[in-house]
Design a protein around this nucleic acid. Structure first.
Lengths: 250, 250
DNA sequence: CGCGCGTTTGATCGCACTCAACCCGCGTGG
DNA sequence: CCACGCGGGTTGAGTGCGATCAAACGCGCG
């Protein structure tokens, strides 16, 4: 199978974990057109206020959406892993309000809005599956709000690692054997609303408590129960079970 | 016109500020069925994990969606004002992950999912308008993340007031003449990730700086430019201009 | 009148920020 | 070959914003 198709299969898997789609609908997803693009680390591939006519599917690497204050402090709003359609919402909101940036070297696939609209018109259930897909991102955002608003640094970091571990599973990584998380401590600080210095210290705590082991891009969770407890991590917000979005469902 | 229709007109206005809809589509929205319900202050009207078959349109009052930590600390994830469909997303995610609560005495209108699905099947552009509507909530959530992660208490509070002021305009309030914001300082603390005590002190700062004037449920912004500057408030994240979501658009 | 809720204020504490070095590995260029 | 710069990580000392603990006040309501 071609590289493009592999990307679409990851995306289809993502959709299928949350929405039931018929064979015809699945084929329509896999037949989506698009061109592949490579993006260097720390490069915006969608700029602020830009009008876009395509959505970006992450094939490889790590991307994030940013907001920032006047003084230049950044906050990472959401993280995109391979298989995530980073800005599927751009189909209905083509003027993007927030930039998208590659945190590490990343490959993306640009899917024209026209094709996405055509497929949602032909299959209303796909339209609702896209909508539902965005709900998951919103749910992740809600957890992030809870973290930033009410959790201490250690719990925030633990929660982040738990979430990335689960989200990495479809990519062939498991929690125990470790996963790739190619973000710098600077990036993590921007995700958690902390300073890089404090991220470093907090990370040390987790290491010294034998909860996680970090070696460059590779993260391994040594004590999942303890880490999940510290984070108060409950994965149900990620694993919405498949729902039948076809009209006249039972 | 009946009370139910007035609620739907507010909702239709909300949609029309962001999406273009044909006359037929607008009539379909206004014809949505639903029963009216009154909710006391501090009462959940959607409980955690509940499976719902209707969405809740806020007619009057103030509602919010919550998340909380194991120790019971709460974080308000989103606020719903009259005219907002509080959980439109429940159409595609009927198992709600977060509870909805009335912050003050509130009247809602329950719209059956079946009717909403029927209308999106008959008019795909309505489905995309719903989707797009949710994007605005996400955009508001992104600003909240930026606030919690990177802004100080005074800026967070200022930003909140600016946002509510703008969002209240369609209800007949203007920024200068004041608006109704029926949340306690406790609620505000749960929105901003602060303690009630600190909200009180911060509010005093804003009062003493002659930026806002608060009298019970009534808030008046005395110095909009200064408040917006303190908050770094840029309303573009709320006012997505109307987009044509019909297939084959230019 | 007494109770409860929301607001207000004071005193102290602590988590995370700030400022400042320094280390290390890597790529680049003299 | 080494000098140098640079990005990322690590550590220390001092500071401050917002939390915590505690108490009192005002007001509506039973």
């Amino acid at each position: 199978m071609s590289a493009g198709q592999r990307g679409l299969e990851l995306f289809l898997n993502r959709l299928l974990r949350r929405s039931m789609l018929t064979d015809a609908e699945q084929r329509a997803i896999l037949a989506l057109p698009g061109e592949e693009v490579a993006v260097e680390a720390n490069r915006d591939f969608i700029r602020m206020g830009e009008q876009v006519d395509h959505a970006c599917l992450i094939l490889e690497g790590l991307a994030g959406r940013f907001a920032q204050t006047a003084s230049g402090e950044r906050q990472i709003i959401s993280l995109q892993l391979p298989g995530d359609m980073a800005d599927l919402h751009s189909v209905v909101a083509p003027r993007t309000s927030l930039p998208l940036q590659a945190l590490a070297r990343t490959r993306i696939r640009r899917i024209p809005h026209a094709a996405l609209i055509a497929v949602t018109d032909a299959f209303p259930a796909i339209g609702r599956a896209f909508w539902r897909d965005g709900i998951v991102d919103q749910s992740i955002g809600s957890q992030a709000l809870l973290s930033l608003g009410r959790r201490k640094a250690a719990a925030r970091l633990a929660h982040l690692y738990c979430e990335i571990a689960i989200r990495s599973e479809p990519l062939g990584f498991s929690r125990e054997e470790g996963f790739v998380f190619d973000a710098t401590q600077n990036h993590i600080a921007d995700m958690l609303g902390l300073t890089p210095v404090h991220v470093n210290r907090t990370l040390r705590q987790l290491r010294e408590s034998k909860l996680v082991e970090v070696a460059g891009r590779y993260v391994r969770i040594l004590d999942w129960p303890a880490l999940a407890k510290l984070a108060e991590f409950d994965p149900t917000y990620l694993q919405l079970e498949p729902v039948d979005l076809h009209a006249g469902r039972g």
